[in-house]
């Protein structure tokens, strides 16, 4: 546990140093932190033995909320919570339906909802500008409108701060009675019911929390890229989130950030070179990790320590 905190602090420091030493990396690392926050949500659901193949919908909700509201209200301190709340609200509404289902149903119903959202974003051109996407208008931070370089640092800082905040939150949550009951859904859901604990409500709480973190992740992505397109909701984007969760390992709240950083760094170099085979490589690595290193990167690291 102590080692985990130490590693988290070192990791955060390393990110800051990298972003400072190699300026263009700041963009990549901010995206990695944003996705890491969203992947924390996937990790929660994995703890319950469930996997969502449609989590990109919450990123899309957060990102589009940012893009839609920015022209009316440019204050990030208001926009970010708004994006989080809208994603969480949506998560609550569909969650009430989804938590009745497990396994393949849970995974595929999530995918179905994400596909619906994607096609609406793509087809309702009058509102969403379709595949052209929407540019995010100029933002202000606590009333100030800093120049571009400073602003990039601010967004990076916010992403890092929120990553630490949500990482801690998830860690406490997973050790709490609710978090332990959540893990109980994976192994003995009937027991929960016979202890008088409503398993669906336990899962719903986790689902809404994961939707909220997805929304925050999406809002941060929008603040970084300054342009949102339906692509953010596409199933491949959800697949990437699941990939990161498994790559990083579900064993620790650090896993998603380890996974996301590794993923985004590799993608910068590799994705353009092998654009048509990118999903294939992800799928291949996913298979290898699942079949040969089920604990992910985090599992490999912690095993080395114990040895």
């Amino acid at each position: 546990m102590k080692r985990e905190s130490l590693l988290a602090a070192l990791g955060a420091l390393a990110l800051v140093v990298c972003a400072w030493a190699v300026p263009w990396l700041k963009f990549v690392l901010t995206i990695a932190l944003a996705k890491g926050i969203a992947v924390l949500g996937i990790l929660l659901l994995l703890r319950a033995g469930q996997v969502s193949f449609g989590h990109s919908m919450f990123l899309a909700l957060g990102a589009y909320t940012m893009a839609f509201l920015a022209p009316m209200e440019d204050e990030v301190l208001l926009l970010l919570p708004a994006a989080a709340l809208i994603a969480a609200g949506f998560g609550l509404v569909i969650g009430l339906f989804l938590v009745r289902y497990r396994d393949i149903f849970f995974g595929m119903l999530n995918l179905a909802f994400a596909m619906v959202l994607y096609s609406l974003l793509e087809k309702l051109y009058a509102i969403t500008k379709g595949t052209d996407g929407i540019r995010v208008a100029a933002l202000s931070f606590a009333g100030t409108e800093p120049e571009r370089g400073t602003q990039e640092w601010i967004v990076f800082g916010i992403a890092l701060g929120l990553a630490i905040l949500f990482g801690l939150l998830v860690r406490f949550y997973l050790a709490s009675p609710m978090g332990r009951a959540l893990a109980g859904i994976k192994t003995r859901e009937t027991r929960l019911e016979f202890m008088g604990v409503p398993a669906r409500r336990v899962l719903l709480f986790a689902y809404v929390l994961s939707a909220l973190m997805g929304g925050v992740g999406g809002a941060l992505v929008a603040m970084t890229t300054r342009h949102v397109t339906p692509q953010i909701a596409y199933w491949t984007a959800s697949g990437e989130l699941v990939f990161i969760a498994i790559l990083g390992g579900a064993g620790s709240a650090l896993g998603p950030f380890l996974g996301a950083t590794a993923f985004e760094l590799v993608r910068v170099y590799a994705a353009a070179a092998v654009a048509d085979a990118w999903q294939m490589i992800l799928g291949g690595v996913l298979l290898v990790v699942i079949l040969f290193a089920p604990g992910g990167v985090w599992g490999l690291l912690s095993r080395r320590w114990r040895a």
């Binding site: 939150l169 406490f172 949550y173 050790a175 709490s176 009675p177 609710m178 978090g179 332990r180 009951a181 109980g184 929960l192 202890m195 008088g196 604990v197 336990v202 709480f205």
Partner: peptide, 16 residues
């Protein structure tokens, strides 16, 4: 967890 189930499990941030 069984004890928590009797007392109420709805505390997300204090340890089990």
């Amino acid at each position: 967890l069984a004890i928590a189930a009797r007392r109420g499990i709805w505390s997300p941030f204090t340890p089990l």
